[in-house]
Design a protein around this nucleic acid. Structure first.
Length: 603
RNA sequence: GCCGGCGUAGCUCAGUAGGUAGAGCACGUCCUUGGUAAGGACGGGGUCACCGGUUCAAAUCCGGUCGUCGGCUCCA
């Protein structure tokens, strides 16, 4: 079998060159599985080169669980083509080629790129110095720092998963290449487990569950990215918000409500029309004045602060609001509840003095951790975003205030014994911040909390308080959101619990299932008893058999079902069935209520 | 916004040599009165996303728009 033209050309190119085999070549360090995945990318590239002559190759790195390769493939490649590519990959792997390494001088490498018509590789070469490393398996050669597995036979347990567009070198201005993703593991068991996990993740997709459990609705008719909370979801949102308000009020926060629109002039002053315009919706004309929908709550909270002259005795002032904001998000980025155009920030702005600033930060971390505990996220990861020390000019505020702030943020984390990653250059231009991500049941992390210092707005709005020295001082402003957005947080909760929500959050906690029509009255009595005790109970009075009603209760993910038939009606009991666990046996109504209350209390 | 896939009943989907539509679930009525994950019969429900084109004839072919899905980019 003759190799396709493309491969022959490449092979000839290489043969015609003088190779400087360097004895001391050291490939970069990769773990065995990373090496395997990277070799997979090469294997895929060789298959694509065979099937689609003329393909130009970009980069093909290993990633978590697998690999991808960015390529410019002539003609359209669709998801249906993936199995063919996979087949070709297996065929090549079976031949058990060895991966061989060569080193070319930079000049030779450039010549290779030109002669084999690989302009993307040529471009990469421009950024690399010195001799260039190449790897070959079979008829395919790729410029690559390695390392690789020895033989293609090792490349067994993989699956191509998706195909997508990706900008060359991640730049929106550059052409879009075709990226093919695959997953790969060292053993079949690991691959199967991973594929199973992907299935699981699909099952707990909040968009799926949102439909099935009637939690929320997103539809073109009401605008993309705009959420209709259905009764079940709305009730759960109320539970979340009640808890949030309770905790805040207990900790000295004051609750606000502010408008959804404000004159453009306000957004000019806050700087949003300057820095954030692209994310704001088009203005509306009200009596000849231009108004804008709010993308953030900050200016309003500042307006509350500025209601009158403030004294240091009033600080810290902790203002919080579940504030609805609207942001224009580009159409391609909308995603269920995770990325929407109208959402509710669990926002707060804390105005404090330099003396109390540190303990306020500490209190923010404390309330954040309390929230994670309440909503069932025991694990979280913290990032401290600092300014780029190489480029301090693009940041607002003096060196002293930045150093002090960053040090204080770090101290607070250290004193709480919280581990964190410090990231230079990730701070906003107006101040450093702490970001916190929680880890869900299946190990994914989601950013929730952000605690940011703001050196900008207090200046812009000329905020002040009168100190003990009777002089005006500029307050320190902390901007923080614990859950981020209620919409997004709800989406995360749905996926975290896979729809099996804790009892205290569930819109319906118990569904009473009469065995037949004859026991409807007793069932209604049980519902009344539960309701009187504050339990959210409903009667399933449908004309169906018990098995059907139980199935419905399970499918609807109702935490408890209470079966009532002749036996129960006579003895004043219920047959209790727990979601997923099944029959718990018969108990008195009192015991059932006590059981439910205990579980609700325990959270 | 960009690349690619998709858009048929409330939901999940079938409907490829173009001839104005089907299933299951859900919903309604009736029968059935039943012990821990689907009892039965009948019935209502769709401008086949939208706009335009080709054709005697378009869910089906072509173009555009919108939405959605997977990525990319973005994410004060």
């Amino acid at each position: 079998m003759t190799p396709p033209l493309e491969s022959r050309t490449l092979a000839r190119c290489l043969r015609s060159m003088e190779f400087s085999m360097s004895e001391d070549f050291q490939p970069r360090q990769l773990s065995p599985v990373e090496t395997l995945r990277h070799s997979m990318a090469h294997l895929m590239a060789s298959a694509v080169a065979e099937l689609y002559p003329g393909t130009k190759f970009g980069i093909g790195p290993h990633i978590q669980n697998g690999f991808y390769y960015d390529m410019e493939i002539p003609g359209a490649v669709t998801p249906e083509d993936l199995p063919h590519i996979e087949e070709a990959m297996r065929a090549i792997a079976k031949k058990n080629h060895s991966f061989t390494h060569k080193t070319l001088t930079h000049e030779e490498a450039l010549r290779w790129a030109e002669e084999s018509d690989q302009p993307l590789k040529a471009e990469l070469l421009a950024d690399i110095e010195g001799p260039i490393s190449f790897y070959t398996h079979g008829a395919f050669t790729d410029m690559c720092a390695g390392p690789h597995v020895r033989y293609t036979k090792k490349l067994k347990h993989f699956k191509l998963t998706q195909i997508a567009g990706a900008y060359w070198r991640g730049d929106e201005q550059r052409p879009m290449l075709t990226r093919i993703y695959g997953v790969a593991f060292e053993t079949k068991e690991e691959l199967d487990a991973h594929l199973l996990m992907l299935e699981e993740a699909k099952k707990r997709d909040h968009r799926r569950l949102g439909k099935d459990l009637e939690l929320f609705r997103l539809t073109q008719e009401y605008g993309p990215g705009l959420v209709l909370w259905l009764p079940n979801g709305a009730f759960m949102r109320k539970q979340i918000e009640d808890e949030w308000r309770k905790v805040h009020l207990e900790r000295g926060y004051e609750l606000l409500f502010t408008p959804h629109i404000a004159p453009s002039t306000l957004w000019d002053r806050s700087g949003h029309t300057g820095h954030y315009r692209d994310s704001m919706f088009a203005p509306m004309d009200i009596d000849g004045e231009e108004y804008l929908l709010k993308p953030m709550n900050c200016p309003f909270h500042i307006g509350v602060y500025n209601n009158r002259k403030r004294s240091y005795r009033e600080l810290p002032m902790r203002l919080c609001e579940l504030g609805n904001v609207y942001r224009y998000e580009r159409s391609g980025v909308l995603h269920g509840l995770m990325r929407v155009r109208g959402f509710t920030q669990d926002d707060a702005h804390i105005f404090c003095t330099p003396e109390t600033f540190k303990q306020e930060l500490d209190a923010c971390l404390d309330i954040a951790q309390l929230m994670y505990k309440t909503f069932g996220f025991p694990e979280f990861k913290v990032e401290l975003s600092c300014r780029d020390p190489e480029n301090t000019s693009k940041y607002l505020g003096s060196d002293e205030i930045w150093t002090l702030s960053e040090d204080t943020l770090a101290e607070v984390l250290d004193e709480r014994g919280i581990e964190y990653t410090r990231i230079e250059g990730e701070a906003a231009f107006y101040g450093p911040k702490i970001d916190i991500k929680v880890v869900d049941t299946i190990g994914r992390s989601w950013q929730l909390t952000t605690i940011q210092l703001d050196f900008n707005l207090p200046e812009r709005f000329d905020l002040s308080y009168t100190g003990a020295d009777n002089q005006p001082h500029r307050p320190i402003m902390i901007h923080r959101a614990l859950l981020g957005s209620i919409e997004r947080f709800f989406g995360i909760l749905i996926e975290h619990y896979a729809g099996d929500f804790p009892l205290w959050m569930s819109p319906v906690q118990a569904r009473v299932l009469p065995l037949s029509e004859k026991f409807k009255d007793y069932g209604a009595e049980v519902v009344a008893r539960l309701t009187a005790e504050g339990i959210r109970a409903r009667l399933d009075d449908s004309d169906e058999k018990l098995g059907y009603k139980i199935r419905r209760a399970e499918v609807d993910k109702i935490p408890y079902a209470a079966v009532v038939g002749g036996r129960e009606a006579e003895s004043g009991t219920v047959g209790v069935r727990k979601r997923k666990d099944g029959d718990m046996g018969t108990m008195s109504i009192e015991d059932f209520i006590a059981h439910l209350k205990a579980e609700i209390e325990a959270r």
